[in-house]
Design a protein around this nucleic acid. Structure first.
Lengths: 140, 140
DNA sequence: TTCCTTGCAAATACTTTGCAGACTG
DNA sequence: CAGTCTGCAAAGTATTTGCAAGGAA
C-alpha cells in the first residue's frame, strides 16, 4: 500500500522499485523512531538483507527528493536521521541524552513564529529545525 | 574586557590565555555572524595570524566548556558554527538559503513549550535547537 | 534491450586524537 | 620549571562520487 504509492512516485520520476528500496521502505515503515543511515544499514544486515551503506544513503536521498521521507538533524547529533512522512503530521522530536530514545512531539510553533520572523527580518521563511534533548522518564 | 573575563574563566579551570585563544576571541568578538571552524581559520589566515585548524577546534571547544561560546547546528548545514554568548540573550537564527547570510532572531518559544513537552512526554527538557532557513530581502 | 541501480573503492568534508616541541604563569 | 598549549600527522566518522556489472520494465 505504501509501496504502491511510492512506486508511483518513483515511476513518475523515471525511477524503479527495487529490492533494496523495498527493504529500506519496509524498515522505515515498521520502525517507530527516526533512523540514521548506519542504523538502517545495521538493521538490514540483521534482517539478512544484502545492501551497501552507500545504497542506503542513495535510497534515503531519493525518498527525500520525492518528499516521502524527512531528513532530521537532531540537537548536536552529528548525523542525519530519516523517517517516513507519508500520512503523518509535521512534528518534532526530543531525544534522551542518556539512552538515546527519541520521542515524537506532536507540536510545532512555526505558524505563530513565521509572521513574526518575516515582519522583523524581511526574510521569507522556508524550512526549519526544532529538536530537543532531555532526560526520559527511565533515565531521570 | 571580554578578554579579562575569559582569562579568569580559563585560570579557574587550570587553563592559560594564549596568543591563539586571544586571536579567536577577538575574531568572534568583532564578527556579527556565527562562524564555522574553517571560517575562523580562514579569517585568521587573512589577518596574518598563524594558527592551525586543529587549534581552532580545540579553542572553540574550550570556550564552549566554559559556557562562553554557543555551538550552533543550523538547519541541514552539516557543520557547526560558534558565537560568543557573553552579554547576549539566548536567541536563534535564520539563514538565507541563497547567499548564506545569517540573521539573529531575538525570540525563543522554549518557555511556552517546555511545560507542554514535559507534561506530554514526562521527559525533563534540557537543551534545544531551533534554526530557520529562508530567503533574505536581497535574494527573494 | 535500455538505462536505472547497485556494490565496491575511493574521495571528500568535518572533527578528534597522539605526540613532541613551544610557551605561559 | 612544571604543566598547558600548539602544530603536524594521522585517524575517525558521516557522506558523496566514479565506474563497471547487475537488474527492472
Amino acid at each position: 500500500m505504501l509501496e504502491k504509492i511510492i512506486s508511483q512516485g518513483l515511476k513518475a520520476t523515471g525511477r524503479r522499485m527495487t529490492r533494496t528500496r523495498k527493504a529500506v521502505l519496509s524498515l522505515l515503515e515498521r520502525t517507530h523512531e527516526p533512523l540514521s543511515a548506519s542504523e538502517i544499514f545495521a538493521q538490514l544486515q540483521e534482517d539478512q538483507v544484502a545492501i551497501d551503506l552507500v545504497t542506503v544513503y542513495r535510497t534515503v536521498n531519493v525518498l527525500k527528493d520525492l518528499g516521502l521521507v524527512a531528513q532530521l538533524d537532531l540537537h548536536h547529533e552529528g548525523q542525519s536521521r530519516y523517517e517516513l512522512k507519508e500520512g503523518r503530521k509535521h512534528h518534532h522530536h526530543i531525544r534522551c541524552q542518556v539512552c538515546g530514545k527519541i520521542v515524537d512531539l506532536l507540536l510545532c510553533p512555526l505558524k505563530k513564529l513565521t509572521k513574526l520572523i518575516e515582519e522583523r527580518t524581511k526574510f521569507v521563511v522556508g524550512d526549519h529545525t526544532l529538536e530537543f534533548t532531555g532526560f526520559c522518564p527511565q533515565c531521570q
